[in-house]
Simulated scan of single mutants.
Amino acid sequence: MYDHPTGALYVVATPIGNLKDITLRALEVLKGVHFVAAEDTRVTRSLLDHYGIDTPCVSYNEHNRTEKTPVFLHRLEKGESIALVSDAGTPLVSDPGSFLVEEVLSRGLPVHPVPGASAPIAALTCSGLFRSGFYFGGFLPRKRNELLKTAEDLLHRPDTHVFFESPNRIEKSLEIMREVLGDERRLAVVREITKRHETLCRGTIGDVLDCLARSPVKGEIVLVIEGWEEDRDATLDDLPPKVLQALSEISLPPSEKARFLSRAFGVDRKSVYRLLEDLPERR
């Protein structure tokens, strides 16, 4: 499987926290290749030792890629196979691996993905803010003006946006983005995904800031921001009678019922609320 006329590069996803989140194929590849190109050999060595894998690790990162890439290409052309890994998750997502992949492909050598854990996808799936499309923007800009520009760019975009952010900057970044996005845009901050202290803070920007203030902000953070929707005023024709009947039997505040109907049927929340208030008089 790992012997080609030339070698092959395997882009291998590794766990993002819980060491059990690795595929059987990934373990097989890590055992079978000639060496592992690792962002941090100490991190990868710990993972390999956990599974009893003695494949050698070689450092490959932003600082040494220029000198290491020609060496790797030569070894691939000799018939050796390489596994490319990052410290956590899927390589090439905010790490330097794309340079190596491009060079390998430009030589006509094979590159094989070995899919698995991905922090942006994991955060997206548990955020409750994904509908159709999404955009991954890497790390948020550090400078205020650039961050405001990012917020302006996504202000009227319908797709969900996903970013990485530092625990030291997340609260300040949210305060700055609120200047553009306002108080109603919903988002989720997911911390320490798959780890012991995994936390999800979800709601409006104010809700999330309150949540973050209640506990120390530590560990890796993924920020998910819901897409923009152009709401229209609701009419009774937008709201199926069976849905209204079901909601009437559930003990929820009118504001929560209005929020649900607004999201479900793409209509303005305030106009739904007014309709719910008027319903008893219309029956």
Rank of each mutant, 00 (worst) to 15 (best):
I176V: 15
I205L: 12
K242W: 09
H161V: 04
I121E: 04
L147S: 00
L247N: 02
P15C: 03
L9R: 05
N18A: 09
R45V: 11
C57V: 11
H112M: 09
L109R: 05
P280M: 09
E102K: 15
M1S: 13
E102D: 13
T14I: 14
D21L: 04
V162E: 04
I53T: 04
M177F: 08
E277M: 14
A83I: 09
N61E: 06
V36A: 11
K270G: 06
E192P: 00
A188I: 09
V58C: 10
G128R: 00
E171R: 15
R107G: 10
S59P: 08
D231A: 15
R263T: 05
K68F: 06
L223I: 08
F130R: 05
L84W: 05
C126W: 07
G89N: 02
P241Q: 08
L155P: 07
E39Y: 02
L187N: 00
G138C: 08
P115Q: 06
G219F: 07
T41W: 03
A83F: 03
D159R: 13
Q245E: 13
A119I: 03
I193H: 05
V43H: 15
R142Y: 07
K195H: 05
L187H: 01
S255R: 15
T23Q: 10
S251L: 00
T90N: 06
G182N: 12
E62G: 08
R185A: 01
R157N: 12
A117H: 02
C57L: 12
L279E: 10
F164Q: 11
R196T: 12
T125D: 08
D54T: 12
L147D: 07
A151S: 04
T204M: 11
D237P: 01
L140F: 07
S118P: 10
M177W: 08
A246Q: 02
G79D: 01
L261A: 06
H4L: 14
V104H: 05
L252N: 03
N64I: 07
D40I: 11
L200T: 14
I16Y: 00
K172W: 09
L279D: 06
H74C: 07
K149T: 13
P240Q: 14
V114D: 05
V243Q: 01
R282F: 12
C57A: 14
E152S: 14
R107P: 14
L147I: 03
S132R: 15
S251E: 11
N168W: 12
R75Q: 11
K31D: 06
T235H: 09
S94W: 07
E80P: 07
R269C: 11
V111H: 02
I22Y: 02
F164H: 04
E256L: 12
L174Q: 06
I22S: 03
R259H: 13
